[in-house]
Design a protein around this nucleic acid. Structure first.
Lengths: 241, 241
DNA sequence: CCGACCAATTTGGTCTGACCAAAATTACAG
DNA sequence: CTGTAATTTTGGTCAGACCAAATTGGTCGG
């Protein structure tokens, strides 16, 4: 499924995928632009734009003489999406890494929001939590409420760095996971406890309480996602067989 | 100072800078590729490659009809470097945001390293801390030791997501700050306390102790950097006057 | 047999000029 | 003034060409 409808981005998607799948060894030279153009029945210009995009990801280094494959560990965050999209089922380890990271950043954001936010803003954050509570019945609606909560939280915290990282992670990851239709089942008791703590925390401007609650949320989310993934796996195999 | 010696990247640098400086309003159309080519005395191909790179940053959206400027808050992390480079002196708020974020991720990394690392790895981490202690006299040497410590920490934690984010942040930010020759002066007592706690934490596999120590380190680093920046400001003005 | 040096080839970087389809703009009719 | 049709502009793509730097392969001397 091509990212865009332009030829250059299709070439980029294809090449990126091949590099991530390890079709080329680290440091190995990619085929020349002319060869690639011939292979994709495209012009050199289109291939060059594709290669330029891949270079932005840090996956290759283009120099006169040839484009060479860079080690994955030196790449940019933007490769995460394509990396996840490589397999039908997300790699559990990668998912865990992602959730841990997202959790740490969300916690930081919440702490900053409490430190910097006006009482009016904190009150509105509390109301967001109430909205999440009220949407307990409908999973999709609740997810939407969580998203709006995080969005506003980020606005209050006013940390551009985290915001930009969040953009990347969300764009690269969340959609991917959601598209699979994975629906983690939270334990109601735990969730109620988390939401209660959040409400209290925002009301009392209690940095630690909110931080702890969010940590707990992501811990629970990690658990449930891993569980959902484990359930999803045989389900997929059944469909294939 | 152009990022690369290619024309397309020079155009990209120039345009990126103008967009970040607010020369175009949000949603406003950029000049057409043909106009830009004329302005830079370059070919459309070069301009297209430059625009493609800027689009990757999330700064513009290219569609048939024109390239439109996107809001900064929707951009990717990779804009941080150019954003910092905009002014001679880093924006204190942005610097604070950065250090907070880096600190949160480093803390997460340390906690994961302790959870996953073998005792051999943890021991080596402890030795890294000792190396930092021994380099207390030479600031540059100590910075190098810190870098090696974080690098190995990241390896042990084995969290690709954080690692990739770190790549972006380091590439976009650390160099920039270091280039200015800003040398924060740590309080020796505090630093000794932090390093001691780190050593103990790695020795005893004490997640919280290491986490707390790292939080303290970044808190101290933030303080010192802000201080150094404040001292640096008049110094720069004196040089200019 | 090996290593250093040099020429031929390959490769990326750039330019020119052209064509198409979609979007934006303008002109026109109601 | 409004809605629609014609025109222009814009991005997407292609083809062919040139240059400088890097790679490659062969040659020569040890």
């Amino acid at each position: 499924m091509p990212t865009q409808n332009t030829i250059s981005s299709e070439i980029a998607t294809q090449l990126r995928s091949e590099i991530l799948r390890g079709h080329f060894r680290e440091g190995e030279r990619l085929p020349s632009e002319r060869d690639l153009a011939a292979r994709f029945s495209a012009s050199r210009g289109a291939v060059r734009e594709a290669l330029s995009q891949i270079e932005q990801l840090g996956l290759i280094a283009i120099k006169p003489g040839g484009a060479r494959v860079q080690p994955l560990r030196d790449a940019r965050i933007a490769v995460l999406g394509p990396l996840m999209a490589l397999h039908e089922i997300p790699d559990p380890k990668l998912l865990d890494n992602f959730l841990q990271t997202f959790g740490a950043l969300a916690t930081l954001t919440a702490e900053e929001a409490i430190s910097r936010g006006s009482s009016e803003q904190l009150n509105r954050l509390r109301e967001h939590v109430v909205s999440i509570q009220n949407a307990a019945d409908d999973f999709a609606a609740q997810q939407q409420q969580w998203r709006e909560f995080f969005s506003y939280l980020s606005e209050v915290a006013d940390n551009l760095v985290v915001q930009l990282i969040g953009n990347d992670l969300k764009a690269q990851f969340v959609e991917q996971a959601m598209k699979l239709g994975i629906t983690p089942v939270f334990r109601k008791r735990v969730m109620a406890q988390i939401l209660g703590a959040l409400k209290q925390g925002f009301a009392r401007r209690d940095r630690d309480k909110v931080g702890t609650a969010l940590r707990l949320y992501f811990q629970e989310l990690t658990l449930c996602m891993q569980q959902a993934l484990a359930d999803f796996n045989p389900q997929l195999q059944r469909a294939a067989g």
